[in-house]
Design a protein around this nucleic acid. Structure first.
Lengths: 322, 322
DNA sequence: ACTTCTTACGTCATTCGTAAACATC
DNA sequence: GATGTTTACGAATGACGTAAGAAGT
């Protein structure tokens, strides 16, 4: 009989048919360029005709390839969908997954995309997003079981917690009033805040606050601090020139306020946020969401070490061993 | 990410789900029993749960397996259908395939099934069945291009012809009148016809007639022969006691007549019929039909050497080399 | 000259069949 | 003990990546 088709070939074929570019398809499929070429050649041999007209400069579908891609795309995706639905069923990705977000910025720039990816992959599993309050024991909502995962700013060093995929890694900025002399600077350093009042979040664990902004400047100034009650509150005070507010670049994507300018802080390392969960609570649902996050971010940024690195290290490695 | 499913696994899974028997599934898929076991185990690992409840005595689908098979069967078969349709398009299995049949008996017992298999596999290719006439140069309709293939009794030794898959191999019988003393025999031999008139087909090549029934008996009798004009004609003459008619066992499945009895002939080898085509005319259409025949017959008889043997030897081996 | 697809080739993982073990009736 | 599934293991096939080649702009 003929040689049977395999899904591997269809995956590659459909990817190339979409991208019309062997290199991009290879990248998307996380395989080698030459492999794409080989697989397409093999598929063409099985079909018995060319599927792509290609020079080294341009790739296009032949009528045959067009037809194949038209007719195959739907049953193929149905097959994958049904299969992953059954896998979810077997493995327990259903019901509701509750995710706490500590602050909008800690969700990172791809949050929406991550949630959409998860929803598409696991239609039987609802996602519930819960805003959490400032709380020195903010991780307790995980321990109490009020949420399954938490999007939170690092560092998190509690021994009973697993730190999953990174959600963001952002440069630090200082929000200052437009009229502030610092507003005209290219960048500032922590010492520049020595004679100003710095915002202070209420009721957060010391560890996190100190990592966020040092309590004492490099030159030894002990900073004055003012507790804020909300980010809107902070913005008002900044605009009024009463405080400066250290944050990350994307902050101003979510909160808009006149009279406030962001100036890069050059002597603070980038700040990271990540998904965190109670190690003891590890479940297929949690793993699936962590995977969706890692995949989405690595695809969006093209950088694998960024998101997948930490996620696979800690979250994915263990189930394989079990 | 997870490990990707492959069609190989789905094929095996669906086969086992239908048969509910690893051994039969293996047979149907032409693979080893243990391979079925391994593949199912692998698939279960990928799914994350058992798909079959199985003891060494009984195999049944788990609810999970049931759902998987329900949901997957349709898109899977659609995938295969679309793919083979495109393959046909590429390779040229479309239009009309004309097949001549020399006599109903030479089509063999699975003819209908063969044609149905071909039609199912190649819906875009029409099949036209043509009855051919007795003719000493009966292969000329192939040479003239009036038909693409011919179902005909062997031997065929013309150098420009390819003998494809066998359609039948049947024991020889002699049709005699009910009243004939031979009718009461368990079996007869050629010599028993020495004092009778034997039917003779009109205008057939000597080679074929002699292979069909020897012109001279083993003991040296030269047989009297009477030319018949049709099989119905022959049956009438047999019933009337005027001739005896050598044929094959299945003859009486197609032609029914009172007063005629079939008695096995013990000293003639089984007679074979096969598909034949002009070697120079080899085409995807012809190959596809030959394959449909070989597959159908090997499946129906369970005997691979019977049909596939000769077909693959001659018809399938060459395209691979080309 | 540069980008992009293809071919050649070596390495490694998977697949497959044989044979023996194991389980169930 | 017969029937049927699983495990162990060695051989062969096929998958994959690297690096060099070819072809087009």
């Amino acid at each position: 009989m003929w040689q049977a088709v395999e899904l591997r070939e269809l995956r590659v074929f459909l990817a190339v048919a979409e991208e019309l570019h062997f290199g991009r398809a290879a990248e998307r499929l996380q395989i080698n360029r030459s492999r794409v070429s080989q697989i397409i050649n093999g598929l063409e041999a099985k079909v018995g005709g060319r599927l792509f007209d290609r020079t080294s400069r341009r790739v296009s579908l032949t009528p045959l390839g067009e037809r194949l891609s038209d007719r195959l795309a739907q049953p193929y995706s149905q097959l994958e969908r049904e299969f992953s639905a059954v896998r979810d069923l077997a493995v327990g990705v259903a019901g509701t997954l509750r995710i706490g977000i500590y602050a909008r910025v800690s969700c990172g720039p791809h949050w929406l995309q991550i949630v959409q990816t998860f929803r598409a992959r696991h239609p039987d599993c609802a996602v519930e997003i819960v805003d959490t309050k400032f709380d020195p024991n903010y991780l307790d909502i995980l321990r109490a079981g009020a949420v399954d995962m938490l999007a939170v700013r690092l560092p998190v060093s509690d021994a009973d917690m697993t730190v999953g995929p990174l959600l963001s890694r952002e440069a630090r900025v200082l929000l200052v009033a437009t009229g502030d002399p610092l507003a005209r600077r290219e960048s500032v350093c922590v010492d520049d805040c020595g004679d100003r009042t710095v915002s202070d979040a209420p009721a957060l664990p010391r560890e996190m606050i100190d990592a966020w902004f040092p309590p004492v400047t490099p030159s030894g100034y002990k900073l004055r601090r003012m507790t804020i009650r909300s980010f809107e509150d902070a913005l008002l005070l900044v605009a009024a020139g009463e405080i400066v507010h250290p944050t990350v670049t994307s902050f101003l994507h979510y909160y808009i306020h006149d009279g406030v300018v962001a100036v890069p802080i050059r002597d603070l390392p980038p700040s990271e946020s990540a998904l965190v969960w109670l190690t003891a609570n590890r479940s297929p649902k949690i793993e699936a969401f962590a995977r969706a996050a890692a995949d989405t971010i690595s695809r969006a940024t093209g950088d694998r070490s960024f998101a997948a690195g930490r996620a696979t290290e800690r979250a994915d490695a263990t189930p394989a061993a079990a």
